[in-house]
Design a protein around this nucleic acid. Sequence first.
DNA 1: TCAATCCGTATC
DNA 2: ATACGGATTGAC
Length: 654
Amino acid sequence: MTSTRPQRAGRVPASVDAVARVMVDVPLAHLDRPFDYLVPAELSEAAVAGMRVRVRFAGRRVDGYVLDRGPSSDHDRQLAFLERVVGQEPALTPETTSLFRAVADRYAGTFADVVRLGVPARHAGAESRPLPPAGAVPAAGPAEGWSRYRAGPSFLAAVRDRRPARGAWSALAGEAWPHRFAEAVATAVASDRGALVVVPDARDLARLDAAMSARLGRGQYLALSADLGPSERYRRWLAVRRGAVRAVIGTRSAAFAPVADLGLLAIWDDGDDLHIEPRAPYPHVRDVLVLRSTLTGAALVVGGFARTAETAQLVESGWAHEIVADRSVTRAAAPRITAVGDDVERARDPAATAARLPSVAWRTARDALASGHPVLVQVPRRGYVPALACVRDRTPARCPTCSGPLATTSGHAIPTCRWCGRPAGSWRCPRCGGKRMRALVVGSTRTAEELGRAFPGVSVRTSAGDSVLDEVPAGPGLIVATPGAEPLAPDGYGAALLLDGWALLARPDLRAAEEAFRRWSNAAALVRPDGQVVVGAEASIPAVQALVRWDAAGHAARELAERAEVGFPPAVRMASLTGATGAIAEILELAQLPDPSDVIGPVLTGDGTQRVLIRVPRPLGGELANALKAAAAIRSARKAADPVRIMLDPSAPF
DNA sequence: TCAATCCGTATC
DNA sequence: ATACGGATTGAC
C-alpha cells in the first residue's frame, strides 16, 4: 500500500489510477520486472500504457516504459513520482508488450534488451511529420498462384476467414514467391486485418516491394529495414504503430513491428542466418513469428525453396501443416538435376579447374549457352573453417561421445572435440571404417576465371561480396556467384553448375547438409524448367538426392531425425554459455537446471573464454531458460564483473 | 545506551 | 551508481 507521508512539494498524485507499473531500461537481469511509480496529476493524461517515461531509479535518471496503470501498489515503501513522459505517443502496444516479454523469456533475456531490438530510437521530428494517409484498400483479386499447392487455396481461405492457419510452404522451382506473399497479404488486408512479411536481406525486400506495389499499390504497405536513416525509420515505424498502413514488409527487426490486429505473418527462407539477431538475446525471426502467431492467433506461413529442421519440427508436432505441390507439378516445374561427385572432386584444385571441368558440367553449360540462355555457376565463399574429415570419403569427423565436430588444436597431433573437449584418438569413419582423417582446406574464387577460360568468347560476370548483381540480361553468358548473391535472370537460367558442394558439406557444422541443400535449391530455383542443374557432390549424399527430387520437406524431416539421433536442436532444446572460466562455473553452480539436463563441456574457445552446452528434452526448454535467467539474475545482483553470454538453441554452438 | 561506521543488498 | 537497513563498534 502506498504511504500517506507528505509528498514532495508541488507534486500531487493523479486522482485515478495514480500508480504506473514501469519497466526500467537497465541491462541487469535481476531488475527485469516492473517497478511502481506515482503518476503526478499533471502527467495523468499523458502517462498511458506503452509510453516512454523518465524515472529516478536508485538515484539515477533512467528511461522506462509504462506497462499499465492501477489504483494501488504492493510496494510497501514510499513510491517515487514519474519525472517526465517522453514524446506524445506510446512506444509499445499491448500486443508488442506481451511479445517482448515472451521473446525475453524464451531466450533467457531481459524485456529491455528485446525492446531495444523492436523499437527504433525516437526521432522527435518524425512525430510531427506523419506519412500521408493511405487510400482505399483494393479488393483482393484472384490468387491463382497458390492453387498449384495442395493446401494453398485452403490456407488463403483461412487467412480470409481470419482463422489461425499455420503453413510450412515448400516453394516450387521458379516460384515468384514475392507475388505469392503479396497475394496472401492482400487477402489479409481485404479481410481488414494486418499483415507482416519478413525476408532475409535488402535484395529480397526489393523484390517483395515490387510485388507488393503491383498487387496492393503504394501507400497500402510500408517497408521497414535497417538501412533507412534513423529519422525515416522512426517515421515509418510510427506510421505502422498509428495504423496508417495495415501491411508491413521488412528485414529482421520488422518481426517486432507494431502491426495492429494481425491476420497474417510470413517469413521467407528461414534457414538464412540473417534471420538470427546478433544482439542479445539473439532471437530468430521464425521463433519471434511463431510466438507472435501463438499470442495473437494470426496465420503464419514459413516459406522457402528449402526447409529447416526447425520448420520440419513445427510440421511434425502438428503446429503447422504442409503447403506443398503434388509430385507431378513439382517435377514439371523443376529443372533436371544431375549429381557429378567424383569429377568435381578432382576439379577441386583451382589451377586445374579449367582443364578438368567435369565433362557433364562442361556439356551442360555449352548446351545452355548454345540455346541462348545464361548459365549460373555457384562457387564457394571464402573463409570456411578447416574441418577434419575421413581421408577416403570426406565424411566429416565427429566425436564418438557427443557427436561434436573434431578439430586439431595447434601443436597437438590428437584431434579433440570442439564441444566436449575429449580427445578422439581412436576415431573410425562411420561410413567406410577408415582410421585416417585430415583437414580439408578450402578454396578460392579463382574458379571463376578458370571457368571463363573454358568458354572463350563468352561473357563472364561475377556476383559476390560487395558487388552483387540484381539481374543479368537474357542471352548467353556465364554468371559466377557465391551463395546468396545469385542474380535473377528474366527468363530463367538455362543451366546452373553448383561447384561448391565439397566446401559446403565439409563444414564442421551439424547444419552443413541443411545449408548445402538451401544454397543449392535457392540457385536451382532460378533455372528454367527445361534447363539443367549439375551439382558437384556425390549422388549418394541425402542432400543431393533430395535436391534431385526437389523434396525440401523430405530432406528437412530427415535432418530433424538426425538431430534427434545426435541430440541437437530442434529435437532437443539447448543453451550455450560463453564467458570466463569462473563465470561459467558460477552460473552452473547457481542454476537449478531441469532434470534431466546434459551438460557438455566446458571447452576452451579460441579467444581464451570457456563454453558449455546444456541440453534438455524439448518440453523442458522453458524451464532451462528460466533457470539460466534466474542464475544470471543472481550474478547480476552480486555485481559479478565477467559477463556470460547465454544463447538458447544457438544455430552454430561452436 | 546511543551514535558513528561498516557492509550487504535493493533499487518503486 | 546511491541509498538504506541492519549489524558492529566504541565511548560514555
